[in-house]
């Protein structure tokens, strides 16, 4: 048995883990630490526009100076400035309302998809997913076409005599909601569809057999069993909508100022990097609960399969 040379396969499996691990630590984890650090710094007019900078050549004293100069001033500002508070609240409001609307209109569509004849299902699902693959900018832009003052929506409403003069749609809350609901529609429908499609149809037959009329079966059997899908869809929509930037920027007005825009303005407009970083940290803290919840579900779902 001389051909049985004794090697182990740890080298290749170490590479499998190490390459993506290192990449994510460097480009996903480390940046957050830097954001955290800058959120504790002061804004300056220099390049880069924040202080203190970590001076490693100054040795121990440099390190001490560095930590001594860090402060929570930016966070204090966040809580005292009404603008910040308002944009956080607006973000959460928009995210909550949009998620509710999405659930309300997404559920019937997902349900119909799941009940569709098998050979149509693949094509119908593809049709729902297709717009998601096009650029979200295109999706927003398509709505600008329709919502503008002399756009199709006003034309149609005028033609139908529902309104007698053009209404302003753009730069309103409605426009933001329409844009968000439109863009996140597949994110709600697909997880719902996935749980509804897996559901054993004999459960519905059993409920009917035991005397439940269809609407009761729906609320007593279908909805409770699709709760995992509802949770997944809601998280998948709520989290990114809270940080949404493009929709309120292109479709909204100053009244729909969300945290994404405030952060953007602080960073690019006012060049106040520490304030922008503090805004990001607080946003992350707000979303930490939902994000962790989502991750746990995702990890568990993948492990179970």
């Amino acid at each position: 048995m001389g051909d049985m040379s004794k090697t182990t396969n740890t080298r290749s499996s170490r590479l499998i883990v190490l390459a993506p691990y290192a990449w994510l630590v460097l480009f996903f984890l480390a940046p957050f630490l830097i954001v955290l650090k800058i959120s504790l710094s002061q804004s300056t007019l220099m390049q880069p526009p924040y202080a203190p900078l970590l001076a490693l050549d100054a040795g121990w004293q440099g390190l001490k100076d560095f930590f001594g100069a860090l402060s929570l001033d930016n966070y204090a500002a966040l809580f005292t400035d009404a603008l910040y508070r308002r944009s956080y609240l607006k973000s959460l409001e928009v995210a909550a309302v949009s998620t509710a609307i999405l659930l309300f209109i997404g559920y019937p569509v997902a349900y119909a998809l799941a009940r569709a004849p098998r050979r149509w299902q693949a094509i119908l699902v593809l049709l729902v997913v297709l717009p998601f693959w096009t650029s979200f900018l295109i999706r927003v832009y398509a709505w600008i076409n329709i919502l503008q003052r002399d756009g199709l929506l006003n034309d149609a409403l005028l033609a139908l005599h529902i309104i007698d003069r053009p209404t302003t749609w753009l730069a309103t809350d409605s426009a933001v909601y329409i844009g968000i609901v439109y863009s996140y529609f597949p994110f709600m429908v697909l997880p719902l569809y996935a749980t509804l499609e897996r559901m054993d149809e004999s459960l519905l037959e059993a409920a009917a057999d035991l005397g439940a009329p269809p609407w009761k079966t729906f609320f007593l059997v279908t909805v409770p069993l699709s709760l995992p899908g509802i949770a997944a869809g809601a998280l998948l929509c709520f989290i990114p909508i809270t940080g949404e930037f493009v929709m309120p920027d292109l479709l909204g007005s100053s009244a729909t100022l969300m945290i994404g825009q405030t952060l953007w303005t602080e960073f690019f407009g006012n060049r106040d990097w520490p304030a922008a970083a503090a805004l990001a940290v607080v946003l992350l803290v707000i979303l930490a609960g939902p994000i962790l919840l989502y991750q746990r579900r995702e990890a568990r779902a993948l492990e179970r399969r």
Binding site: F27, F28, I34, P240, T242, L263, A280, L283, E298
Partner: peptide, 21 residues
């Protein structure tokens, strides 16, 4: 955690943190 987080992380946070890096 690091693999799943970017799926839902608001882009604005990812963008800002990478720029600062």
């Amino acid at each position: 955690g690091m693999v799943y987080a970017p799926l839902v992380m608001p882009e604005i946070i990812t963008g800002l943190s990478l720029l600062l890096l």
